[in-house]
């Protein structure tokens, strides 16, 4: 009896799950680790981190009620004492005190105005960081011999930009090619030795200007990050996420292919070109406050033996 209806029950459940609200279904497909971090930040805030400028939770307000009364009482007593001192020792002393006090208050005011205002866990004066343009260079996109050939093969997005336009004026660094937002470029594969000593075909990307102060957080959705090189020092990461400072060179493994489904097609223009997505790298800036701000995605595609890359801003 149990066996007969067990199947029915499971199938009923599966059917019911199939009719869940559409927004819930789509959101589950689009959920990323970045949302997870944001969710965790929100939870931490709820649990107790009070942020300046924000109202305290009701429970905590009640908890501070008595402390507030005591503080007010003490402040009133202090004021009374001051008045008495002033009365006893003359107006001059009182004036000196109040002058000094007002200066301190003023300084505090100024200090308060100058201090970065924190809201929702982020620094409001971090607009400088927000304004930072991320530059990505591909290591060995085009060498001298292949340059003209690669130019022709560059695939542009749906915009009217031509491949010649996309390749000129962007040789910002020797042997590297800047990858401009929305423009697909052919990437070259290099074989490197992994920590384990095996040969790994990788794509090397440089994130940000050398000497810059920003730290980028990278999350490779499909394959692993083999290594990160900063200031000539290579560290092996071999994980799906890694940090790199401006100018850092990161090697992405190309051996695995995407099996996940993206509700949002990251590069629609590749659909018609027959380019399969190999990997999506989420890029965010780690701000001074520790908060991560997603700035875009670098999408790696493959068609035949050729690899393609495009940077898409968030």
């Amino acid at each position: 009896m149990r066996k007969d209806r067990e199947k029915t029950g499971e199938e009923i459940l599966l059917d019911a799950i199939g009719n869940l609200p559409e927004d819930m279904i789509a959101k589950a497909a689009e959920y990323s680790v970045f949302q997870k971090e944001a969710e965790e930040q929100g939870k931490r805030k709820e649990e107790g981190d009070i942020v300046f400028g924000e109202e305290e939770p009701e429970g905590r307000k009640a908890g501070h009620k008595y402390r507030k009364i005591v503080c007010r009482g003490l402040a009133a007593a202090a004021c009374l004492a001051l008045v008495m001192i002033a009365g006893n020792k003359g107006g001059e002393l009182f004036r000196q005190y109040t002058d000094r006090h007002s200066i301190v208050s003023e300084k505090k005011e100024v200090g308060h105005q100058n201090a970065p205002r924190v809201s929702g866990g982020s620094l409001e004066n971090s607009s400088k960081e927000k304004e930072q343009e991320l530059k990505i260079w591909a290591e060995a996109v085009e060498d001298g011999k292949d340059k003209s050939k690669t130019k022709k093969e560059s695939i542009n997005n749906s915009s009217s930009q031509t491949s010649e336009e996309s390749t000129d004026d962007n040789t910002a660094k020797e042997g590297k090619k800047e990858l401009k937002e929305g423009v697909t470029k052919i990437l070259q594969i290099e074989e490197v030795d992994s920590k384990e000593g095996e040969k790994v075909p990788v794509i090397k990307l440089t994130f940000g200007d050398e000497g810059g102060k920003l730290t980028y957080s990278l999350y490779s959705q499909v394959s692993k990050i083999i290594s990160v090189t900063e200031g000539g020092v290579t560290k092996y990461v071999n994980l799906q996420d890694a940090d790199c400072k401006s100018g850092g060179i990161v090697e992405f493994d190309t051996r695995r292919f995407a099996e996940v489904s993206w509700a949002a097609i990251p590069v629609p223009e590749w659909e018609t070109k027959g380019i399969e997505i190999q990997n999506i790298i989420n890029i965010s800036i780690r701000q001074e406050s520790g908060r991560e701000q997603e700035i875009g995605k670098f999408v790696i595609g493959v068609k035949g033996e050729k690899y393609y890359g495009v940077f898409k801003k968030s």
């Binding site: 599966l14 059917d15 199939g18 009719n19 869940l20 609200p21 559409e22 927004d23 819930m24 279904i25 789509a26 497909a29 509700a263 949002a264």
Partner: peptide
């Protein structure tokens, strides 16, 4: 209101 979710439901239930 959510086309992705709407289509996902259709294709999933058809496949099921």
């Amino acid at each position: 209101e959510n086309l992705a979710g709407y289509l996902a439901k259709i294709v999933r239930n058809l496949a099921l």
